[in-house]
């Protein structure tokens, strides 16, 4: 049975309303401050160490993103950790709060489809995240200009823009997950808790668990162990399992894009290749090709999670 009328009718209206809600919300302000302060700390560390050893680096600006100085992780690593938090903060009560406020049936009694409501909310949250990430990106460029005194080259700007796009898709995965949970669970607290649980599991526990599982699936070969080497099979499995986590995909993609010398992705090979490839940067297009599977993975994850939420929402009862 075909339904008549555009599924996008009302999309713009929902988008504008949700965007202004997001931007004016206290919750968003707190998350922004959290990210801003940690990012500033990381950048301070990076700037400091870059100023101390003023070696000739053609990609000085990019080093700002990736350089870590103990005890702080790099700017990219911090974003990898905090972007999910921000996305979850925007999405965990997207749909269930409409149920709980009893606004859902009133809104859906207007001449719009559910598609417009869900998509409007998703796009508005994604736009909010994009605006915040773009602001952070500008901050990095600005700080680089001020404290390092080197104007960034075109290639650096291009690479950092790719970083921005990938970061937005990474946020999209977590946003789609949070919105899916907001459809599944009627209580926003439950949805938030589950989302945060998944986030902690994938970013903190999974990097420890994946190698352990890999050793179970493909036990290390004693011949390699005797030589002090990792067994290739175990390493591959470990990498494969790690890549279930969007966090890993994001970090790998960032490595390829922001460190132009990266020729291959994956911890195992990287260890083996390090040194051999130093000082031979790849052109941007090739770096992007290396990170392509990771980027596609993030985009696909966003789409799959959004579609799952969409299907559930279409079949859900509107009444509270």
């Amino acid at each position: 049975m075909r339904r008549e009328g555009s599924p996008f009718q009302g999309l713009g209206t929902v988008f504008v309303k949700e965007l202004s809600d997001n931007i004016s919300s206290v919750r968003m302000l707190v998350l922004e401050l959290l990210i801003l302060l940690t990012a500033l700390a990381a950048l301070y560390g990076a700037i400091d160490s870059l100023r101390q050893n003023t070696a000739e680096d053609p990609f000085l600006l990019l080093r700002l993103f990736t350089l870590a100085r103990d005890p702080l992780p790099s700017f990219v690593a911090i974003l990898g950790f905090l972007i999910p938090l921000m996305a979850i903060g925007l999405g965990f009560d997207a749909v269930n709060s409409e149920h709980n406020r009893r606004t859902l049936s009133r809104i859906l009694a207007q001449p719009i489809y559910r598609d417009a409501l869900l998509m409007g909310k998703f796009l508005a949250a994604l736009a909010t995240l994009a605006v915040n990430l773009a602001a952070l990106w500008l901050m990095v460029i600005g700080l680089g200009l001020i404290f390092l005194g080197v104007p960034p080259g075109t290639e650096e700007i291009a690479r950092s823009l790719v970083f921005l796009v990938v970061a937005i898709f990474y946020a999209g995965v977590w946003l789609a997950l949070a919105m899916l949970l907001s459809i599944v669970f009627r209580s926003p607290a439950t949805a938030a808790l589950v989302a945060l649980g998944v986030w902690l599991f994938l970013t903190v526990l999974w990097p420890m668990l994946a190698p352990a599982f890999a050793q179970v699936i493909a036990p290390p070969d004693p011949r390699y162990t005797a030589l002090g080497l990792d067994t290739p099979d175990t390493g591959l499995w470990s990498l494969f399992l790690m890549r279930v986590s969007p966090n890993e995909l994001f970090i790998e993609a960032m490595q390829a894009v922001l460190s132009p010398t990266t020729r291959t992705l994956g911890a195992v090979f990287l260890e083996q290749l390090r040194g051999a490839v130093m000082g031979a940067p790849l052109p941007l297009a090739e770096s992007v090709m290396i990170a392509w599977p990771q980027m596609v993975g993030l985009i696909a994850g966003t789409i799959v999670l959004f579609v799952a939420g969409y299907v559930l929402f279409q079949r859900q009862e509107v009444r509270a």
Partner: peptide
Amino acid sequence: ARQPLAVKARV
């Protein structure tokens, strides 16, 4: 069921 927008515009 088929023309919800037409219905909801007038009801």
